[in-house]
């Protein structure tokens, strides 16, 4: 698999972008110290109250002290705030993906293995979860949670628990088709207990589709976090988040375009890199990928579909 991933320039580029991003997020305190700024100090001297709070100086107040300028209205250091945004984005997205995968695999396996009744109940539940617009429920839920609850954790739970349906479907379908394979029957005939048959014959074969699906979920979750923060119900100020910066930017885009472009570029690059990497992982793990290289053999000129129908994750946050 690694060999096949490395063979794609786009995957290598995406991985490089993500490595830099993770390093920046991890090294945020160090970099902030290097610049000599923090995320929360207001710099009234650097904004021009006569012009409604625009940063003084060209390009949003870029200077040796403030490498990427300051925030309009508050004068907080933009570079450090972007770094903190990266931390929140990655933390929430990866955490939520973990929750989604765990929940989805558990429910999918239970439905695939359980009795007909259990399967019906769980599949219905999955249908409901897949059908519900995640963002709507996520937004609604934040209304009833006590204010003191740690926000990043809340976001992980909300996004995680609302969007496991796709994983559960994939796992259930895969389990059902694997169950029909004769080597699973053979393992039963060999005299193994059902639990052991599941662990040895089924779980390894489930890994590929689950990894593939998880890789598609990460960028979706990044967008979900940014969206909630954009709507003003994500992380609480003064914690910085890209979505929330973009939300503030809606009032500044005429005067200070750089304040829109910086968080937008960060968010876009991250989501794109994860999407490209997810695509590459899918292609590398897809058994049909091998046949794609063999166009023109006995199977003729068959193209391989970009994504199997029904596997397109929801979460196009509108």
């Amino acid at each position: 698999m690694w060999r096949r991933l490395r063979a794609r320039p786009s995957a290598v580029a995406a991985a490089a972008v993500l490595t830099v991003l993770v390093l920046l997020a991890l090294g945020a305190p160090l970099l902030a110290a290097l610049e000599g700024q923090d995320a929360t100090t207001y710099h009234d001297a650097l904004i021009d109250s006569a012009r409604g709070g625009m940063p003084t100086g060209a390009y949003g107040g870029i200077s040796a002290d403030h490498w990427l300028g300051v925030e309009p209205g508050t004068g907080r250091d933009l570079f450090v705030r972007l770094l903190h945004g990266a931390q929140i984005s990655l933390l929430v997205a990866l955490g939520a993906t973990a929750v989604q995968v765990l929940t989805g695999v558990t429910i999918g396996l239970a439905a695939g293995f359980g009795s007909r009744l259990l399967d019906t109940v769980l599949s219905r539940l999955t249908d409901v979860m897949v059908a519900l617009p995640m963002l709507v429920l996520g937004v609604a839920l934040t209304a009833v949670v006590p204010a003191g609850f740690p926000r990043p954790l809340l976001l992980i739970i909300v996004i995680g628990l609302l969007n496991w349906g796709g994983t559960a479907r994939v796992v259930r379908a895969q389990t059902l088709s694997l169950k029909k394979l004769d080597h699973v029957a053979a393992a039963r005939l060999a005299g193994w207990r059902p639990a052991r048959v599941a662990r040895r014959e089924l779980l390894p074969a489930l890994a590929a589709p689950v990894i593939t699906y998880a890789a598609i979920l990460v960028p979706t979750n990044i967008v979900a976090e940014a969206s909630l923060s954009f709507l003003g119900i994500g992380v609480k100020p003064p914690t910085a988040s890209w979505g929330q910066m973009l939300s503030t930017a809606t009032t500044w885009f005429r005067a200070d375009p750089l304040y829109v472009l910086l968080p937008a570029a960060c968010l876009f690059a991250t989501v794109l890199a994860f999407t490209v990497l997810g695509d590459a992982v899918r292609a590398a793990l897809d058994p049909r990928e091998r046949s794609r290289l063999r166009v023109g053999t006995r199977d003729g000129s068959r193209g391989t579909p970009a994504a199997p129908a029904g596997r397109i994750p929801k979460g196009a946050a509108a």
């Binding site: 394979l181 004769d182 080597h183 029957a185 053979a186 039963r188 005939l189 060999a190 005299g191």
Partner: peptide, 15 residues
């Protein structure tokens, strides 16, 4: 189970 065994049709899916 030990005494009654099966040989399957499709050798591709039975291993």
């Amino acid at each position: 189970r030990r005494e009654v065994q099966m040989v399957f049709q499709d050798p591709a899916s039975s291993l």
